[in-house]
Design a binder for these strands. Structure first.
Lengths: 345, 345
DNA sequence: TCGTTTTTCTAGAACGATCTAGAAGAACGA
DNA sequence: TCGTTCTTCTAGATCGTTCTAGAAAAACGA
């Protein structure tokens, strides 16, 4: 059973290895009768088709697309937004009989040679919310692996499927400004704040391109407002709650809180609920992404077509017919009950 | 940049290919000075480390674990239960610097040689809710790839991390029986019912082992009850709704509906809501899995430690120190507002 | 009938690494 | 000084395929 290779089968049937290979890969290159004889013999010998690694080596195709997430892989699954992206990508991957390789991005061994991004046998890569400065991106570029990012990069030859972050956030900012808000706290994802101790950051410390741009958009739309940036940790429900708790319990409460992701905003919602604060009346709360739970919670947020984003990335990576390399997706401000007029001072 | 291999670097430095290989993989096999010289030269030449496929071929290690889901990969992401499993698995994979390979299981080309299960370069596989009869499992066995399933199989040497499906369902059945229910519809995942046309099935037609066992458990706990099995399609919110609609609009309404997954039960909840039916009062509704949304919806369900299940599978696959090959996880009946006494006839 | 095309199959060289065994030289102890 | 051990490095085989180029046989057209 072990050690059965193409050669073994070839010898057993009495043909050349090439022919056995063709029996699997190019059925029209040999007679039907011979092909069947080969496949039968293979079955008998317990040969289960050409070895994946060898095939990948020789043909230069791995049959897999890598997926890069920031931070912990396990974290990615806690955000329905990320999961939606994955679902869209998986749809296209499935269509092209390609597997998805989820790679851990543990920053510890990025410098050394033994990290997943180096090791991975992939034909292309989808980059989801990874800062443009991350070393893994250099490694990919170095390996010559085509990649599509969910952030617009600076390089004109970079591929991406993104939204106009600034404009999207500006829409939300205008909405808040119109409601009279001039004191806003923005909840962001930030690794340094991990461990349950919320911190206030300057714009430069944010780290993620998309977050920076969204903050820019808010500022642009509400130039007179005071914007404070707060992080309760990684992008997660609990971080949103922790961050919001810190803000709500401080002396200096804002009139509105904006979560740069819905999961964070929903965490903040929980913090408000515990304190008996009604969103939209006592304090305005808004999110970003428009995940399914946002609708149920009545959360004002910015909708982005996440699943379609995943599909588009997949198509750019896998479909040779698709030539468009940079795609801007539409966004839409969804106003729900969680936002209301700022209380008169 | 292209075509730079170990050999190129070796020639440039003036050493043998083996030494360059060692510079990457066995740093203690050569002097520090030489190693640095090699790595520097590699950087200069634009060599980005040993090729993944070649390494995999020669060393026999792919650095990836395959994940098999039933049905469409994209579907898997729509169930928080599946996502939770994935998150647990990812946690452990991350720990071992191993990637996760999500493989599409399109049943069409399983017979032919060109499917993902054949192609995939993986060291091991996690099998999530795949019927024991699925051809992909044979392929894996044939390839000699160790696998851990989330269903208890018949073979004593098969690895699994599972729950006692019969017992778990029996707990729920007892609860329903105690409430006086004797007419129950069970909503199941079934591909044949796809397309929005709900069907009633016999036990033999269900297909999924876990579903069959759960039905057995219900029957065992409520021997006098009439159990009807209905499917609205794949395991998803919409199928649960469709199936429930069909049941609710029929002449022959049951007093209780059990979704064999929470997403289906929540879909049924939606169907009830639209019809003005209050769960727990007009009709009892119960689910299975206890996903986060179940709590918010007040759904009676059977809790299973899904994330821990994922972790356990990961450890069996990756941690050589773990010798336990079969693990039974605990379950717990969670009674919430959606279940109540059956109306007196 | 004879050249030409088509079908069917093969030899042998890649693909890019890692492994096994062992050689050359340095370091060591007595 | 000599044998022994340790460090550092290398030659060459090997992993299991697929690819390129072309040969042999069969089918075809005039």
């Amino acid at each position: 059973m072990a050690g059965v290779t193409l050669k073994t089968v070839a010898k057993a049937v009495g043909v050349s290895p090439s022919t056995v290979s063709n029996a699997y890969n190019k059925p029209d290159q040999l007679s039907v009768a011979l092909r069947e004889r080969i496949l039968d013999t293979a079955r008998e010998l317990g040969y289960s088709g050409p070895d994946a690694s060898a095939r990948a080596l020789r043909s230069g195709k791995a049959g897999a697309v890598g997926v890069l997430f920031t931070d912990k892989l396990a974290y990615a699954f806690s955000d329905p937004y990320a999961v939606g992206f994955l679902a869209g990508l998986a749809e296209v991957a499935e269509e092209f009989s390609t597997s998805l390789l989820l790679m851990p991005l543990s920053s510890t061994d990025i410098a050394g040679g033994s990290n997943a991004v180096q090791q991975a046998a992939i034909d292309a890569a989808a980059i989801f919310c990874v800062p443009g400065t991350h070393p893994a991106l250099d490694i990919l570029a170095n390996r010559g692996i085509p990649a599509v990012s969910t952030d617009r990069g600076d390089h004109p030859d970079l591929s991406w499927v993104a939204i106009d972050e600034v404009e999207a956030a500006a829409q939300l900012g205008e909405h808040l400004a119109r409601l009279g808000h001039r004191d806003v706290v923005v909840l962001v994802d930030n690794a340094e704040a991990a461990g349950g101790n919320p911190v206030e950051l300057s714009v430069d410390e944010v780290g993620y391109t998309d977050c920076e741009l969204r903050i820019q958009g808010l500022q642009k739309a509400m130039p007179d407002a005071r914007l404070r940036i707060v992080s309760g940790g990684h992008n997660a429900f609990s971080s949103g709650r922790t961050g919001a708790e810190w803000v709500l319990d401080s002396q200096d409460r804002p009139t509105a809180i904006v979560g740069l992701s819905d999961v964070q905003a929903l965490g903040a919602l929980e913090a408000m609920r515990v304190r008996g604060l009604v969103p939209g009346r006592d304090l305005t709360l808004a999110g970003f992404d428009d995940i399914p739970a946002a609708e149920a919670a009545g959360l004002t947020t910015v909708h982005q077509p996440i699943r379609e984003k995943g599909r588009a990335v997949g198509r750019i990576l896998l479909d040779p017919a698709v030539t468009e390399r940079q795609l801007l997706m539409p966004t839409e401000l969804i106003v729900r009950a969680s936002s209301g007029p700022a209380p008169k001072a």
